[in-house]
């Protein structure tokens, strides 16, 4: 089929479809003067509930951050812990809160270098040589 033939054929087909549709088009006047039905409560409930849930989540996250921040020694007494000197961070005695924060992953042992202290020991400040291993 050539392009003009194709277009002509399609126009004819669409015209038939249009005639078919127009026979069952509803009355304009009836639709234009129809009264708006009562708005479904779901249309306002769903967005409102979503907003409330998001707000609660944000409040919960904020409260959690505030609680953990307040319980950490840095937040309570930032001047109490001396700032670590460059290069001797691992030599500094671990602060009470830091040792508790170390949480080794199950596969952390794979990262250990043979001949050096295990990572868990380094994280606890037991590795005395900062140049060895890491």
């Amino acid at each position: 089929m050539t392009a003009p033939d194709e277009e002509h054929e399609l126009r004819q087909r669409f015209l038939e479809l249009k005639r078919h549709d127009q026979r069952r088009a509803p009355d304009f006047e009836k639709m234009w003067t129809a009264r708006r039905p009562a708005r479904s409560p779901w249309r306002s409930i769903v967005p409102a509930a979503s907003l409330a849930a998001a707000a609660m989540l944000m409040m919960w996250c904020g409260a959690k951050t505030a609680l953990t921040g307040a319980s950490s020694p840095e937040a309570v007494a930032p001047a109490a812990a001396p700032a670590p000197v460059l290069g001797t961070a691992s030599e500094a005695a671990p602060v009470a809160g830091e040792t508790g924060a170390f949480d080794p992953a199950p596969l952390d042992f794979l990262l250990d270098v043979p001949g050096s202290a295990p990572r868990s020991a380094r994280a606890l400040g037991l590795d005395s040589n900062p140049l060895q291993g890491w």
């Binding site: 249009k18 549709d21 127009q22 088009a25 509803p26 304009f28 006047e29 639709m31 234009w32």
Partner: peptide, 9 residues
């Protein structure tokens, strides 16, 4: 109103 049938289509 004039566009109504086309709008319905």
């Amino acid at each position: 109103a004039a566009l109504h049938p086309a709008s319905f289509g």
